[in-house]
């Protein structure tokens, strides 16, 4: 038996919104330590990894490890039926091919029950090496989203350059070019407004903005975002999911032909 009850159900709605544009089908892995998911987009350019720890749920039970094959479009449709203030409970029997979703309004006067068919998925799991990165940039998530949106009007690629002075995002295209530079700003009153840069070596990498824009669907989950980069390896874009986990997006860089 698997059962997970999340009082702040809106978190699950936001997580789903942050995943659905990148992956069409994914295996949600349930173990006694929590829920996790790892999936690549169809073109093998980006990968998303979600962790929601068991202790972040008000109730969590998982007697046997389960891999629930979920059509992300169906999951989105059903989670849209939950109100933002609803408590969400997920339930599945060990051998069932269905996931039950229950939405309770805060005062308990409305209870909705949905059942979603699960799929048999044969998912490749990738081993992501633990690695130290040359640059880690923490910045307000809305600023990152704004930069990606703005520069996507200029060109299809963004060059991210990180030095000890700051991080620069540049794009160029047929109509011209654009550059946005963010400098370290430790004096901001709110922690989420701070820009911090930890660097051991300068980094410059080029990425397809299209994917970065998809990652920014996670913006509402967290006030800040962390970009981790080293030369010649995939970028990591990480959003915390409150104190219960994270969504990490990996994106392969573009390379000179």
């Amino acid at each position: 038996m698997f059962e997970a009850r999340l009082v702040q159900g809106s978190l699950l709605k936001k997580v789903q919104e942050a995943l659905k544009d990148i992956v069409q089908e994914a295996s949600w892995d349930c173990t006694s330590s929590g829920l996790s998911l790892q999936a690549m987009d169809g073109s093998h350019v980006s990968l998303v990894q979600l962790t929601l720890r068991a202790d972040g749920f008000e109730k969590y039970r998982c007697d046997r490890n389960l891999a629930m094959g979920i059509n992300m479009g169906s999951m989105s449709k059903i989670l849209k039926c939950a109100g933002n203030d609803d408590v969400i409970t997920l339930k599945a029997e060990d051998t069932s091919d269905r996931l039950e979703l229950m939405f309770e309004s805060p005062k308990g006067e409305k209870i909705s029950n949905y059942e979603m068919k699960l799929m048999d998925l044969d998912c490749e799991q990738l081993g992501i090496p633990d690695q130290e990165y040359s640059c880690s940039i923490k910045m307000p998530s809305h600023e990152f989203a704004r930069i990606c949106r703005d520069l996507s009007q200029i060109g299809e690629c963004v060059v991210i350059t990180c030095t000890k002075d700051g991080v620069q995002f540049s794009a160029k295209g047929d109509m011209g070019s654009g550059t946005v530079k963010m400098s370290q700003n430790l004096g901001a009153e709110k922690e989420d407004d701070q820009v911090t840069i930890e660097m051991t070596e300068p980094v410059q990498l080029t990425f397809a903005i299209k994917y970065l824009n998809m990652f920014t669907k996670a913006t509402s989950l967290s006030g800040s975002v962390c970009l981790s980069m080293s030369n010649d390896v995939p970028l990591v874009v990480e959003y915390k999911v409150e104190d219960m986990g994270h969504i990490k997006y990996f994106l392969a860089p573009k390379i000179e032909d």
């Binding site: 350019v45 990738l126 081993g127 690629c157 397809a208 390896v233």
Partner: peptide
């Protein structure tokens, strides 16, 4: 023109 690299060049299938 830079070419899009593949994630499978970095991560092993486990």
């Amino acid at each position: 023109v830079p070419k899009q690299n593949d994630l499978l060049n970095y991560f092993q299938v486990s």
